[in-house]
């Protein structure tokens, strides 16, 4: 259980970093078709991974909190704590 959480979170981090780096590159190369295609492909993978994480382990942004009985956004652990 804990391993799957860590595994999924690491995958999200990898996709998010890829998107961030492509974002910076696209800021100065806004018409690069190759980078645009890579961004689109990575965003799909990212969104899928985030949806799976939200459903299994909870939100990574407040808007993803999706529990009728409890505001799970505040639940421990926070990112700066060892998990």
């Amino acid at each position: 259980m804990m391993d799957e959480r860590k595994f999924l979170r690491n995958r999200i981090k990898q996709y998010a970093f890829t998107l961030k780096d492509l974002n910076l590159y696209l800021d100065t190369h806004p018409d690069c078709l190759r980078a645009l295609a890579m961004f689109k492909k990575t965003r799909e993978l990212y969104e899928k991974a985030v949806a799976e994480y939200n459903q299994k382990f909870g939100p990574i942004t407040p808007n993803q909190s999706n529990d009728d009985n409890h505001w799970s956004w505040i639940d421990d652990p926070w990112p700066w704590e060892r998990s």
Partner: peptide
């Protein structure tokens, strides 16, 4: 301030 806060509510509130 939020890093050493012991309660989830306070960590969340200071972050938000």
């Amino acid at each position: 301030q939020r890093f050493v806060m012991p309660y989830a509510e306070v960590k969340g509130l200071l972050t938000d």
